[in-house]
Design a protein around this nucleic acid. Sequence first.
DNA 1: AAATTTTTATTGAACGTTCAATCAATAAAA
DNA 2: TTTTATTGATTGAACGTTCAATAAAAATTT
Lengths: 201, 201
Amino acid sequence: MPKVGMEPIRRQQLIQATMAAIDEVGLADATVIRIAGHAGVSAGIISHYFGGKDGLLEATMRQILTDLGDAVSARRRSLGDASPRAHIGAIIDGNFDRSQVSGPVAKTWLAFWASSMHKPQLQRLQQVNDRRLYSNLCSQFRRVMPQEPARRASHGLAATIDGLWLRGALTPDGLDADGARRLAHDYLDQLLANHESTPVS
Amino acid sequence: MPKVGMEPIRRQQLIQATMAAIDEVGLADATVIRIAGHAGVSAGIISHYFGGKDGLLEATMRQILTDLGDAVSARRRSLGDASPRAHIGAIIDGNFDRSQVSGPVAKTWLAFWASSMHKPQLQRLQQVNDRRLYSNLCSQFRRVMPQEPARRASHGLAATIDGLWLRGALTPDGLDADGARRLAHDYLDQLLANHESTPVS
DNA sequence: AAATTTTTATTGAACGTTCAATCAATAAAA
DNA sequence: TTTTATTGATTGAACGTTCAATAAAAATTT
């Protein structure tokens, strides 16, 4: 049923179908036929719009990382020059945003993470995202502590966030976003408390 | 060159070769021919000793988890009824044991983790290991805090350990075991400090 | 407004490749 | 001579990609 302007629609459908297929049977068994079936189209269309299966997988990972970045940015934009705690809290909340922690997204994210160890194209995306999270955390921690402790705090908090995702992806019931957020915030409070020069309460 | 009693030797060789192959090209491209090549044998031998490729992969994951459990047990055995901090510290150290954090092992571990989302056999192994870590942590935290905080502390510390592994597997230079251990110990100290009824220093 | 042509979107069978598994043949040790 | 260990060519299944054929919409002409 050829109607003009299908490209953006099909691209989005196929990216969603990719996540659905990976959620269903894993990356290894997410064949082009299965993905196309989820989108209600034929297999050939994937090569037409993405140049091949690899192009579709890369586009899917890029979408996940873009959504993640947007979720963080949206929460930080309204903060202005608020406290480091507020900014880092927003980063945490953005990382556990609803749209990011659904079963399909979490499983796809983990599958890509593992796959990126040996696919340069995916590894590049992964590292860009990683460094953005780390440097955002670091520059906020730097406002209340010296460089070396700030680096350690950033590394620890980033690891905790990723670890909670990792465990959430494997849990049958999916990630408990509220519980994870609370845990990360508690950790953040403790990291900050260690470097407070003027204890308030 | 048929000599009697080759079975345990070949099994070990093939398990090591599996990790080497996954480290080299990833789980998706770790074919039986490549694995057999790493062990210096022919592909057919894999089906002979492990019943098929799946059997070899399961044996490899089982070995990684067994080694991990042994590394933890060995450090705790000499502790007797020492402090919770000492026991949990030993669990942390065991998880960042030298034999566990080498590039091949870390990458294989992550590959299996992702794969276990959709392979019941691997998922079972994964969950047994997971619950062991969690309940070990929990029973130690319980000695110094109520049940609910102990659960939260265990979940948080387990997530941090896994997160450090995850990031270590992806880092080009491999996991910085000492740095990771220090971070996990700092987190542990903070978790315990929040529930100390008799502040000593 | 009807008929025609052009453009765009889509299909799905065919093709070449790659993989794990099999098993008859082989060779060294017992 | 018997037993045990190992090989590697073969087989069948499954995969991603390609491309000629098709069909619907849009544009153009009558």
